[in-house]
Design a protein around this nucleic acid. Sequence first.
RNA 1: CGGAGUGUAGCGCAGUCUGGUAGCGCACCUGGUUUGGGACCAGGGGGUCGAAGGUUCGAGUCCUUUCACUCCGACCA
Length: 569
Amino acid sequence: MRFSRLLIPTTKETPNDATLASHIYLIRGGFIQSVGGSGLYNFLPLGKKVLDKVRAVVKDELDKANCQEVSLSFVTPASLWKESGRFEKYGKELLRFKDRKNNDFILGPTHEEMMVNLVKQTVKSYKQLPLNLYQINLKFRDEIRPRFGLMRGREFLMKDGYSFHTSTEDMEREFTFMEETYKKIFRRLGLDFRVVEADSGAIGGSGSKEFMVLADSGEDTIVVCDACDYGANIEAAVRKEKTCDEEAPEAVFAKFHTPNTKTIDELSEFFHVNPFYLVKTVAKKALYDEGESKIVLFALRGSDDLQEVKASNAVQANELVDVSEEELTKLGLVAGYMSPTIVPENVIVVLDNELKEASSMICGANEEEYHLIGNSFKGVEANYHDVISVQEGDLCVCCGEPLRYTKGIEAGHIFQLGTQYSEALGANFLDENGKSKPMVMGTYGIGVSRLLAAIIEQNHDDKGCIWTKASAPFDLHIIISNIKDEKQVALGEELYESLKAKGLDVLLDDRKERFGSKIKDYELLGVPHAVIIGKKLQDGTVEFVTRKEIVKESVLAENIMNLVEERML
RNA sequence: CGGAGUGUAGCGCAGUCUGGUAGCGCACCUGGUUUGGGACCAGGGGGUCGAAGGUUCGAGUCCUUUCACUCCGACCA
């Protein structure tokens, strides 16, 4: 294609609301255009080209893995979502609206309901299973705070796949197979990624894994082990039970006067003990459907922090929010001195798993200026859950080596769903014995438009994008330095036509611009290779450029064709 | 949701305090010069100043209402 005929509105200036490299370069390079700055984007020709290339890789690998592409209606009747129970549960991210007849509709943020409904109507027998259907379509999530360009938009392109099985074993087989298929996709796109254990979130289900593209700007914190391949999202990470070298504060059970010691630090100072032996009691309000809420006390070691997602799951809440001091007082809870053992009615207590066998612990007395010493949880029946946040340096549950934090961009997520949706929506099949059973499901997602951002986050420099081979908008970028130099133009045209004929996707910069603008645009757009036809043609040479490190190789003009073929075909 | 801020040309901004002809840079159009790191000269086009209402002879500017967007915050008992 000819640059002079393409709509590629590159700019020198960075948009004022962009902080991430991917956001800046996608806008500056004319790949995408912001729509009213509210998490909505138009894809311009170049952006659409990249999107299609990424999409093609995803589709190719899935089709090879016997998945079948379909396309589901974007607008979804709310009735299906009411059946599954998610119309209420999904929260404000679900965009709801009414048609002229006043019927409720939603814009699909994910399509379990629609897909289950499709399968329910067409699949009746075990002979038709297993089945893996997917689509690559728009999704809409009314994010609280869309930001970072394509990283967290409200409307985005997602591949969502759903598999249906006669048994849990078969679903697990497919889950593992999809993990391998996804790895092929991410590798082919040239990404550095890690597969990690994850929380299942609003989708539900038992096991789930996330595909994290490693990048400092990632919004997710992931816990990894360098000694083995353990990796998990912080929301799901576990560790080998923590121990403490310091001596435990031996004491018989007693109430102790502890003025002005509301925080763990103050308490640790007061008793001269490691926070490991203190109980931190965190109050949260758990929100449920239809405006119901409960106050929950989470108790954990003072050396640990509460992991909110784990905590929320422990009480099966939709969300946890902070509780005001007034509310606590009203319930008979004393802020700063709360206790997991002395608790008013109507307050739920959740103890962290690691407190199960703990002894010599100090906790609040739920009384102003008093703590209880010499507490033991040995043999105490209680509501135990894993609610702590794994910290850097904690030990790996698999191999015992220290764990490390890193940042990742969630680009894929696969779930073992089970029968939760098939039961709710009545998606049953008849087995060999003619018995009706709910289908066992798995679900698999890839954020296709987010991948564009992820690729750039991982592959850019201070000049612009550096697309990977599989994602680049063009294979080769030819720059004619001076459009008034007939020799340069002639060679450029010749190269362009013959390389096109060989099947390369070539961009020819034939604009009436100065060299400076053209090379800046080249570096900004980030096509993996370029040929510069310029001044040096007088001496019979041109340059072959590799974008990644900006390496320029001088090549005799008559050899350039061979070199390009050799390197690129 | 809590806090702060911003809406003026396609983009980035000044002008608002102290009311009086709508400005600048980039981009765009025309002509010319220039052509290896985002050029220069000359000329030109483009804005119901977020919206509604009010005060005034006169409102981008003052008052009221409203909408939109951006940024920061959501491990504390």
